[in-house]
Computed example of a mutant assay.
Amino acid sequence: MRCRAAFLAALLWAGQAAAQTDPAQAAEEAAQLLEQAALALSEADTARDRVRALTEIVRAYEAGLAATREGLRKAAIREAHLAAELRAREKEISQLLGTLQTIETASPPVLMLHPSGPLGTARAGMMLAEVTPGLNARALDLAKDLDEVRTLRQLQQGAADTLTEGLAGVHKARAELSEAIADRTDLPRRFTEDPIRTAILISSTETLTGFASGLSEIAGGEIAATEADVSTLKGQIGLPVQGVLLHRAGEADAAGISREGLILGTRPRALVVSPTAATIRYRGPLLDLGNVVILEPQPDLLFVFSGLQEVFGEPGQVVPAGSPVGLMPGSSPEIGAILSTSGDGTGTDRTETLYIEVREGGSPVDPETWFRTDKDG
């Protein structure tokens, strides 16, 4: 429970950081998010459901690293804007500083005397009284801008350590998650896979449709019936990975190819989870789709995820919602690469793609009839 509470608090911080207009505050809250994930990781060994705890920790790290990148991007943009503004006002600033220095160093008698006598002295004093507050206000604005530049530079200098610790933490959490999944023995099973029948089915089919229609053949015996029903979640199911929607069903990609599913852009090594409770009907390499996971949330409904590098679980297992089913390919970028592109913000770090297809009654349907895609996953 402590790990779960830490994760929920971390996600709250992530939302706050993303909403902040102040880049320094956003980056500081992102750092807090990573620290909370590190604390939760140290407590994961005592969690009753270690797989669930580690899954939440990995996702917290992913959110924290994303928030840190965004905070750095905003900090770099803000610093560049301030630097350009200060350069443009360089002459004005020099004059302002010179005027203030003159006022501060001039002796009181000189300031109070005027060649035209008492009346001129009075008028000069009145003018000085009117001008001085404006000069002070401009000086305060300048000091504030300079202080913000210093803060932003310190923030970026300290970001390397934060990112290094965060990347090391998520790497460790992923490794521990893989071990915990391999050791898991508490999941119910609807069937046991027959590897020979699976190999025969794969070799005899040339399309995803053909493979999906023959899934019942890979079981070593009868597949237990289920009354699972997720129809009330239709259109509201969250995406299985933190990512951005690149192509909807039927939309052509850069090569002019359109598909019946949707394509998400993800970061390297992003964690893919089961969006609902479901039976793993298949997991492994398939045709030219790379590693594939096929989930059955309810009878005659299949969620197909392809493009993974690692897949978790065993066919026949019934996994709870949010259970990890795989990791995306790629490798985490080096610290220098992250810092050098912190001002990008174009999504170029979403280098991997997850293909999602939904099949009802043996036929593909638009995934957006089931999945909510109005925001990033």
Rank of each mutant, 00 (worst) to 15 (best):
C3V: 09
L11E: 09
W13C: 02
A19W: 08
Q20M: 12
T21P: 00
D22H: 10
L34P: 00
Q36K: 05
A37F: 01
A37M: 02
E43I: 00
D45T: 02
D49S: 06
E56I: 01
I57N: 00
E62Y: 06
A66N: 07
A67T: 04
E70S: 14
E70T: 10
E70L: 04
A75C: 02
A76L: 07
A76K: 03
A80Y: 01
L82C: 13
A84V: 02
A84Y: 01
R89Q: 15
T99S: 00
T102Q: 03
E104P: 01
A106C: 05
A106E: 05
S107H: 08
P118M: 01
A129M: 08
A129Y: 08
E130Q: 05
T132G: 03
L135A: 03
L140T: 07
A143I: 11
K144D: 12
D145T: 11
D145R: 09
D145Q: 13
D145K: 09
D147G: 07
V149I: 14
V149P: 06
T151L: 09
L152V: 15
L152E: 10
D161C: 01
T162R: 03
T164F: 00
K172P: 00
A175Y: 00
A175I: 00
S178G: 01
D186A: 08
L187R: 04
R190E: 11
P195M: 09
R197W: 13
T198R: 06
T198C: 01
L201K: 01
A212E: 09
L215V: 13
S216H: 15
I218G: 02
G220M: 12
I223H: 06
A225I: 09
S231C: 12
T232M: 11
L233Y: 08
K234S: 14
L246W: 09
R248F: 11
G250Y: 10
E251N: 03
D253Q: 04
E260R: 15
L262M: 08
I263S: 05
L271A: 05
A278H: 14
Y282W: 14
G290K: 15
G290C: 12
V293E: 09
E296I: 14
Q298C: 13
Q298G: 14
P299S: 03
P299T: 13
P299C: 10
D300L: 14
L302F: 15
F303C: 14
F303D: 07
G307T: 11
V311W: 11
F312N: 14
G316R: 12
V318G: 07
V319G: 12
S323T: 10
M328Y: 12
G330V: 15
G330Q: 15
P333A: 03
G336L: 01
I338N: 10
S340M: 05
T341I: 04
T341C: 07
G347E: 07
T351A: 12
T353S: 04
T353I: 09
I356M: 08
R359E: 12
R359T: 03
S363I: 03
P367W: 11
E368C: 11
W370Y: 15
K375A: 15
D376C: 01
